[in-house]
Design a protein around this nucleic acid. Structure first.
Lengths: 213, 213
DNA sequence: GTCCAAATCATCCTTAGGTATGGGCCCCCA
DNA sequence: TGGGGGCCCATACCTAAGGATGATTTGGAC
């Protein structure tokens, strides 16, 4: 369906999942009319089996799907840490359904028939959110990689240093001399790629928000 | 600083706003049956004029209200920075209405008739969110107060110091001698109530997340 | 005019942090 | 049986940071 083009990997793709081919084609035409790349799928399984699964963009999902429901599929995607923003659409939805989807993190929930512009607005917002999410994830991944290169001892020292303790206090806590703490601390600064304690604290906070909590 | 507040101020209150007195009484009875404090209002204006407006809790709001709609009222509350979580209910709602409410931050949106337990669950979740929000706000208010006591110069120094610059670099940027920067820096540490640069950086981050963005 | 807070700078001293050099111990793996 | 990595410690030296004391200038409040 899509050509293996690595260069296109950074172009946001609107993934349309609907069992009605006419709907898929209509939506694909709509999105292409505003210059968006589109990939269409007839089922959740087809979507999961797609190539270029790491591509940015968003997911336009019919609530009623063959096999698994759109809401359950949303839960599955969340469980597998797929953070692609979802725009739901439905022809026979009700309020509890839409509320459940929104509470589960859906970006929008459109009842058919919807105006084309509403769908385009929702998709544009979803793509923007995905881009922001990816920027944040990308920035964090570098910090994670650096942190992974630390030895256990260095991580202990980093934890206490970013907590505001002095080298001598860290040494007392860990049963080390202040000199050794200094060495570990220097290694931490070098491996984490920071040149100031302020930056190290910020990196530690970014890691803590996603790992230890 | 403030007058001693009555102990009831810390008990979460469920504020019910509905123009139908029968609905108000039924909901009040429901909430009281599980030990919750309740206050009922026949209109948005009545709610805004309520006493003890700073009490924690949540808001149970009918979408259809006399005068202003529940959704517009939600926007008004957000504009006046009232962060009380809102549980909507409606007898004649539709999906776009519920989606708009959820996107605007509503905690839940229940279509009448709803099960009592669903309402109780929604209110319990809303109260919990409010409590968490107030804990965070309370922790931040102390930092804000401390920051407000800084002089303009001290804030500049704090900004550069938390950015990771050395005293001499700050001095060069601000056209000051390193000695002066040290004095300002010491004042910042004292006024902000921190004893380590790490804590100062964290406080600066907490402030920045809510003030500069 | 006087008082005070803010802002500025200086000297002196102490502590803390950073780096370099050198060495020792232990464990795993080629 | 090496070598390497992790971990530990020491001396030495330099820079950075923090605090104390003293002082000046400026601008606004009383």
């Amino acid at each position: 369906m899509t050509q293996p083009m690595p260069a296109v990997a950074l172009v946001p793709v609107v993934c349309v999942v609907d069992d009605d081919q006419a709907v898929r084609e209509a939506l694909a035409s709509l999105f292409r009319s505003v210059g968006l790349a589109v990939a269409t799928f007839g089922s959740a399984a087809d979507f999961l089996a797609r190539e270029n699964a790491a591509a940015p963009g968003c997911l336009v999902l019919d609530v009623r799907l063959p096999g698994v429901s759109g809401l359950d599929f949303q839960s599955q995607l969340a469980a597998m840490e797929n953070s692609l923003p979802i725009v739901f659409m439905t022809g026979h939805g009700d309020i509890p359904m839409s509320v459940r989807a929104m509470k589960a993190g859906a970006l929008d929930f459109l009842a058919k028939p919807f105006r084309d512009q509403d769908m385009l607005d929702a998709v544009a917002a979803a793509i923007e959110r995905d881009a922001a999410s990816r920027r944040e994830t990308h920035a964090l991944s570098a910090v994670r990689t650096a942190y992974a290169s630390l030895t256990p001892r260095e991580r202990e020292v980093m934890r206490h240093v970013t907590a505001g303790l002095m080298n001598k206090q860290v040494g007392a806590l860990l049963g080390l001399s202040e000199i050794t703490v200094k060495i570990h601390r220097g290694n931490v600064m070098r491996k984490m790629g920071v040149r100031s304690l302020a930056d190290l604290v910020r990196h530690a906070e970014a890691l803590g928000d996603h790992t230890s909590v």
